[in-house]
Simulated assay, not measured.
Amino acid sequence: MQPPSSITPDAPAAVRAPLLTQEWLDLSFVHWAVDPAVVAPLLPSGTVPDTHEGVTYVGLVAFRMHRVGWLRLPGVPYFGSFPETNVRLYSVDAHGRRGVVFRSMDASRLIPVVMGRLGFRLPYLWSRMSVRTDGDTVDYAGVRRWPGPRGAHSRITVARGERIEEPTELEHFLTARWGMHNAFFGGAAYLANDHPRWPLYRAELLACDENLLASAGLPTPREAPVSVLYSPGVPVRLGRPSRSAPAVPHPRRPLQRCHIGSTGRVMASYADEEE
Rank of each mutant, 00 (worst) to 15 (best):
A245K: 10
E204T: 15
E223V: 06
P246H: 05
R197I: 09
H250I: 01
D209N: 12
S244N: 13
P249K: 08
S244W: 06
P241K: 07
R197T: 11
C208R: 12
V234T: 01
L213R: 05
P241E: 11
R237I: 03
N211V: 13
P246D: 04
T220G: 04
L238Q: 06
P232Q: 14
A245I: 07
Y230Q: 01
S231C: 05
R202P: 07
S227M: 13
L238W: 14
P232E: 08
V236L: 02
V228Q: 09
L238H: 05
L218M: 14
V248C: 07
L238G: 04
V226N: 13
S244G: 09
P246A: 11
Y230A: 02
V226W: 07
L212R: 13
R243S: 14
P196K: 05
P241M: 10
D209Y: 09
N211I: 11
E223N: 09
E210L: 07
L229V: 07
V226G: 15
G239C: 08
L200K: 01
G217V: 07
G239I: 13
S215R: 12
R202V: 05
P246G: 09
E204V: 10
G233S: 10
S231V: 00
G233Y: 01
A214I: 10
R237D: 02
E210Q: 15
H250V: 03
S242P: 05
L205M: 11
P221G: 02
P199M: 01
P246S: 08
A203K: 02
S227R: 15
L229Q: 04
R243V: 15
L218P: 11
A216M: 13
A245C: 08
R197W: 04
H250A: 11
H250Y: 15
S244D: 14
E210V: 04
Y230T: 00
L200H: 01
S242N: 10
Y230P: 02
L212T: 15
A214V: 14
A207W: 07
V234D: 01
N211Y: 06
G217S: 07
P249H: 10
A216T: 14
L238F: 15
L238R: 08
R237E: 05
G217L: 09
L205S: 12
S231D: 03
E223A: 15
S227E: 10
A245E: 15
S215G: 06
V236E: 00
A224N: 11
G239R: 09
P219G: 07
Y230V: 00
R237S: 10
P219D: 08
V228R: 03
Y201Q: 04
P221Q: 05
L213F: 04
A207F: 08
L218I: 12
L200Y: 02
V228M: 10
P232V: 08
R222W: 06
C208W: 12
R222Y: 06
S242T: 15
A247E: 12
P251N: 09
E204L: 05
V226T: 09
R240P: 03
Y201D: 00
S227L: 10
S215V: 06
